[in-house]
Amino acid sequence: MKITLPALGLAGLLVLAGCGGNLGSDGDSGSTAAYPERAVTLLIGQDAGGSTDLIGRALADPASKDLGKPITVQNRPGANGAVAAKELAAAKPDGYTIMVFVGSLAYITPLAVPADQAVDVNNYEVVTGISQDDFVLVANPRTGFKTVQGIVAAKRPITFATTGVGTGSQLTQTLLFAQAGVQATAVPFNGGAPALTAVLGGQVDVAAVQLGEAKEQIEAGKAVPLVTFATQRPSYMPDIPTATEAGFNVPVQQSRAVVAPKGTPKEVVDRLRTAFQKGFADQAYKDFNAKRLLTANEVDGAALLQQWNGSLQTYRGLVAQHKIDLSAK
């Protein structure tokens, strides 16, 4: 009877054969000429529904058309993407597992967590940069704040919401208030929506959130923009100065890139890059970028590493200069 058991199982499985497994063992890594011969997994280190997730999904769709094989998005949320990054590092460098890597993990989180928990983007092959998000500082209308100078002039301690520890939202505001000499207490929230809610409800005075997240509330007059941390004034609020124009040195952006495990063959990386470039050119993707107020940053791997390593250096310097400790409460 024992013989029938595996036989039956095998028979059952044979019926289903042809569906293709996902164990990775059947992709023979020797021949890259045929890449891709099966679906590519795109890891996303954030929850479904977040900005990174949406960007990844918006991009995966058009890029897979060029690749000729599906790009399957998988969320592996945890520790701002460190969980996914660790999994990617352990994956076979064959181009069938890639990931959307967020810049903050590479250049802000290391400032907030112990060195052994930080992730170094230089240990990955960067396929392409994707886009950048800019932050805007918004205030509840009831505070009466219209500018950063207004906060300084109010001469009172303020509270500000951040989207979490080790995020661009925290770094921008901490740097800004340190430079402006405002006594400010950071109140960390879990993401952009709760932080914005806290401003709308008057729980905190101000918050820095991504441009796209606050657009509707700003246009409806429920939140007052004070300053943006973009390099140029965003088109939908031409009257709001950038931090540089307001006299502050806060060059912080969120940036995203597609990365593959270290050691992925160059041909495969190039093939992926071509596919994503086709994706960037897709009209629906372009519309998505415009709607979400994302600035394209579709640079190649070398340029991206230069940007991100430069950012890490800059932030390290600024944080040291202003004696900021991002991990302290």
Partner: peptide
């Protein structure tokens, strides 16, 4: 949040 994202991709931004 995901429905929010779906609307965004559709070109509608939920808001006031």
């Amino acid at each position: 949040a995901v429905i929010f994202g779906a609307l965004l991709i559709q070109g509608v931004t939920p808001g006031p």
